[in-house]
């Protein structure tokens, strides 16, 4: 299911939580909303799931207007809200049954869907407990199960892996990837490695605006304009080496690593690479080049750059 968002704005009192954003999501894409706390990720999701109406702007799901056909749209969306509210006094199975019925799952299919969700989300061991008795990780699984119970075409997951242990996180990521093959998945997170591991496309949101949009490779590429290498040169005189490295035509800056002698971080000028030049320099001066490593820009750096 394709999603189209046009000039979406949400104002809380004085504050613009979401400020005139527009984007399009194609069917089968797994999109990650990334941003610091209070960036507008959850607000965007709330508007998308018909919980809140936008102050202005339009949202369309496969041509259906969220403002006009909320009932129709709600059937097609599975939503896991931010802090995963659940009816704690209900048993898991009863709760899933309630969700299935209310989402209009056919009566004959209800039990089959519940079984599938219990299996898929690993709830088998705890299936007879009340939700209130579950640990946070299991509650999160119940939250995921209720979101997927009616086999929706779009899944909106607001921070799906909070409260899970590392093994569970890996499982949930695998599950999301699996689901993303046929469904449109939108998830939010402030954990970079998470979106990088699961999403085809990343939207970085800051202060209500989209500040970056692309795959993790393209985003990294954007920041990689200035290539960074780490070199180790053994020749005794650190200051002299640093000076001659800086003298190279392609080099923008050189930093000596304090904790390790003979190590230097060399940053090239935009769109240039200094590896050859560094090598040639060492040969010319008779220095030993012990190490030369390219440093890959991390998504963290991109994130920090665009959100500061």
């Amino acid at each position: 299911m394709a999603i189209l968002i046009e000039n979406l704005t949400k104002v809380y009192g004085e504050q613009k939580a979401v400020n005139n954003i527009s984007f399009e999501i194609k069917t089968g894409e797994v999109v990650g909303f990334l941003g610091p706390n209070g960036a507008g990720k959850s607000t965007t999701m709330k508007m998308l799931t018909c919980y809140m109406a936008p102050t202005s702007g339009k949202i369309f799901l496969e041509g259906l207007d969220v403002d006009k056909d909320p009932e129709e749209i709600k059937k097609k969306i599975g939503y896991l809200p931010e802090n995963n509210p659940l009816y704690t006094d209900m048993a898991i199975i009863d709760y899933l049954k309630f969700c299935a019925e209310i989402q209009g799952v056919e009566k004959s299919l209800v039990n089959q869907r519940i079984h599938k969700m219990v299996d898929m989300c690993g709830l088998n061991q705890e299936r007879h407990k009340r939700i209130g008795e579950l640990s946070k990780g299991y509650r999160q699984r119940v939250g995921l199960a209720q979101a997927m119970i009616h086999d929706p075409e779009v899944l909106v997951l607001d921070e799906p892996t909070t409260g899970l242990d590392p093994n569970q996180i890996i499982e949930i990521r695998k599950l999301i990837k699996e689901l993303g093959k046929e469904k449109t998945v939108i998830l939010s997170s402030h954990i970079l490695s998470e979106v990088e591991a699961t999403c085809d496309r990343i939207l970085i949101i800051n202060k209500g605006k989209i500040v970056a949009d692309g795959t993790s490779e393209t985003l990294r590429g954007q920041a990689q304009g200035k290539a960074l290498i780490k070199v180790q040169i053994e020749a005794g005189n650190g200051a002299a080496i640093q000076k001659s490295l800086l003298g190279l035509a392609t080099v923008e800056s050189v930093k000596a690593l304090e904790e390790k002698p003979d190590y230097f971080l060399v940053q090239s000028k935009p769109d240039l690479n200094s590896r050859k030049e560094v090598f040639d320099l060492c040969v010319k001066n008779g220095w030993y080049l012990m190490e030369l490593t390219g440093i890959e820009t991390k998504l963290e750096d991109v994130f920090r750059e665009v959100t500061n």
């Binding site: 709330k46 799931t49 018909c50 709600k74 809200p81 509210p85 969700c99 209310i102």
Partner: peptide
Amino acid sequence: RSGTIELLSTKAVS
């Protein structure tokens, strides 16, 4: 209070 209203009102009910 518990926020389940968000869950309920994003289900297919008015």
